[in-house]
Each structure stands twice: as structure tokens, then as C-alpha cells.
Amino acid sequence: MSTPVRPQVSTQTTPAPSPNTAPSLAADRPQPPRKWWIAPLVGVLVALPVQLVAAFLLLVSPMALDSCSAANPCGRTEAAIATTLILFLLAVLSLGLPWYPAKRKSRGVGIGMSLIPLGLTLASIGTLLLGIGLG
């Protein structure tokens, strides 16, 4: 007589997939804060008119050097104009800086980063005015 063959059942359990190895779904990703774009937009809209004033002052500042001569050197004014140019270029380049952190981080980070272009622009104007003797 032959005995019936039973199927062998494995007693080993398969481990559950780890959350680190599971593919990420779009719903699992953190959503940006609501209205994240307001702080960078306000920062740019406030900084642009101030930057126009800074650009105008920078363009007319070489007239401050008209009175410079060998007897009356204007080294401080030339250094102030060069520093103002560097600060102004950094301010223009920093207009795009607040957009990424404002979307990815908290609202406070976005507001803080939005103040950078305005601060650099005001620093450039102050440096120029102090350098040409109006401050």
C-alpha cells in the first residue's frame, strides 16, 4: 500500500517589507505650506523699487569723483563705489534665493530669507551714501 503524499508547508514566515524599502508615493511626500509664495513675492516686490533707487545712485555716483585730483584724492569714495557695486550685484542675484526654502521649509524661514535681498540693497545704498559723504 502506498501512503498519500502530503504537500509540505513551510513554517518560515516572510518578513514584512520595511518602510525604508517601500516605494514612496506622492501622497507620502510632505506638502508645501499653504501660500508659501507670498513671502518671497512680497520680498521681491519691496526689494525691486529699492534696487532701482540703488542702481540710479550707483550710476550717478561717478560725479562724486569729479573733484578728485592729485591734491585731493578720493580713495574712500572709489572704495565705496566698488563695495556698493558688489553688494548691489549680490542683492540682484539673491532675488531668487528665498523661493526654494520658502516652499520646502517653514513659513518663518521663507520670511527670513525674503529679507536678504532688501537688506543687501539697503546696505549697498548706505555704503554708497557714506562713501560719497552724504551719510
Rank of each mutant, 00 (worst) to 15 (best):
C74M: 03
P17S: 12
I38K: 06
A54W: 00
V46H: 02
Q12N: 14
T3V: 13
P33G: 07
T84G: 03
I86M: 06
R76C: 06
P40W: 02
C68H: 01
F56N: 07
Q51N: 03
T11V: 12
F88Y: 10
V53F: 07
Q12H: 11
L48F: 12
A91R: 00
I38T: 08
L85V: 09
A79G: 06
S67G: 08
C74N: 02
S18Q: 11
Q8W: 13
V50E: 04
N20F: 14
W37T: 10
G96E: 10
E78S: 05
S61D: 01
E78N: 06
V46F: 04
V42E: 05
R76H: 09
V5F: 13
V9K: 13
S61W: 00
P33C: 08
S18G: 08
T13C: 10
K35N: 15
I86C: 03
F56W: 11
E78G: 05
A91I: 01
D28V: 10
L85M: 09
A27V: 11
V5G: 11
I86G: 00
L87E: 03
R76G: 13
T14H: 14
P40K: 04
P62F: 01
T11G: 15
L89Q: 06
R76A: 10
L65I: 03
L48K: 07
A55T: 03
T21W: 15
T3Y: 15
A70K: 06
T14S: 12
A22F: 09
A80P: 04
P33N: 10
V44T: 09
S10D: 15
S10G: 11
A91G: 07
L57F: 07
A39M: 08
I81K: 01
A47S: 12
V92Q: 02
T84D: 01
V44H: 05
N72P: 02
N72E: 12
S24D: 15
I38G: 03
P40F: 02
L93Y: 04
S94M: 09
L89I: 07
L57Y: 04
I81P: 00
V53T: 08
L52V: 12
L87C: 03
L93I: 05
L45S: 05
T83L: 04
L41G: 07
I81F: 00
A54N: 02
P62M: 03
A22I: 14
Q51T: 00
A22L: 13
I38A: 08
L59G: 06
D66Q: 07
A39C: 04
V50K: 05
A71R: 11
R29D: 09
E78L: 04
S18L: 11
N72Q: 11
V9L: 15
P32C: 08
T14C: 14
T11I: 14
T21M: 15
L41V: 12
A54T: 00
P19I: 11
P4S: 09
A55H: 03
P15I: 13
L25C: 09
A47M: 04
M63N: 04
A16F: 12
N72H: 11
K35C: 14
T84A: 03
A16R: 15
D28L: 12
L95D: 07
V5I: 15
Q12W: 13
P73F: 03
L52F: 14
P7I: 13
N20A: 14
V50A: 10
P62E: 01
A39V: 10
T14V: 15
P62K: 01
N72Y: 11
A22Y: 09
A26D: 11
T21R: 15
A79W: 00
